[in-house]
């Protein structure tokens, strides 16, 4: 494996009981690359992303982060997971902690950084996403768009080598989608390696290097972004695209 490969997935398969959710998925993401994953509901997008940082266990296949194989469990797995940030559809901020505490929790308890150092970094990141004045707020006091931007900051505070996004804007009111996408676009421009599950085709067009189309647990095709939007190779992707662009 060469050093410009940031994330590599090979032959990944997973079942929930009798249901085969992922079938032999393989994908390599280069350092600094932005990959968008799309596909119909239930096609396994969330599950794939969760397998990549080991939140979900899988039966067959292997995942490498910067050339290091992801162990299925234990401390080594946790350490490697901490290097890949994850942003969820429903934010998953901790409701009992303030914004600042949410952001500092993992740097302090996982990376063992001094509190003052973690807080200073958190404040700098908050300022970057325009939420410097919210550090003492609780998640419930914030809008969805603000919560999601803080969730992104929380992941960034760990100095991740890559970021995974699972439909980061699909739980948001339309008027808040833009502010979250803007933060993601800036991240992409700064060279962050990103895998983004999203149906925001505008974001895909402007930020993605490649698009992955999934259906029924399989990666059906992987294209350069332009090629994907010009003409997907598979009928299923073409159908999906025509439907989603019609909206």
């Amino acid at each position: 494996m060469t050093s410009h490969e940031m994330i590599k997935v090979e032959g990944l398969s997973k079942s929930f009981g009798p249901l085969e959710v992922l079938k032999e998925c393989s994908l390599t993401v280069r350092r600094g690359e932005v990959v968008v994953i799309c596909g119909p509901s239930g096609s396994g997008k969330s599950t794939l992303v969760k397998c990549i940082n080991g939140i979900e266990e899988f039966e067959r296949g292997q995942v490498w982060i910067e050339g290091e194989a992801l162990p299925s469990r234990g401390r080594a797995a946790a350490r490697l997971r901490a290097r890949v940030g994850m942003v969820f559809q429903h934010f998953e901020l901790y409701p009992h902690l303030t914004v600042l505490e949410n952001i500092c929790l993992a740097p302090v308890h996982v990376l063992k950084r001094p509190r003052t150092e973690a807080a200073a970094k958190a404040r700098a990141l908050l300022a970057r996403v325009g939420l410097a004045d919210k550090e003492a707020a609780y998640p419930a006091q914030l809008s969805g768009g603000q919560q999601q931007r803080i969730a992104i900051v929380r992941a960034l505070a760990m100095d991740p080598v890559a970021m995974l996004f699972d439909e980061p804007t699909s739980a948001l009111d339309p008027e808040m989608i833009g502010e979250v996408l803007a933060v993601m676009l800036e991240l992409a421009r700064d060279g962050m390696t990103m895998i983004v599950v999203t149906h925001e085709m505008g974001f895909a067009k402007s930020a993605a290097d490649r698009v992955v189309f999934m259906d029924k647990g399989a990666i059906v095709e992987i294209d350069e972004t332009q090629a994907f939007f010009a003409a997907p190779r598979s009928d299923r992707a073409r159908l999906f695209l025509s439907r989603i662009l019609a909206h």
Binding site: K50, N53, G54, I55, R75, A78, R79, R81, A82, R83, V84, G85, M86, F88, E92, Y94, L105, A106, H109, V110, R154, A155, M158
Partner: peptide, 9 residues
């Protein structure tokens, strides 16, 4: 899951 993703045990 969010805690796991952040590397918490």
């Amino acid at each position: 899951q969010a805690a796991k993703a952040l590397g918490l045990g």
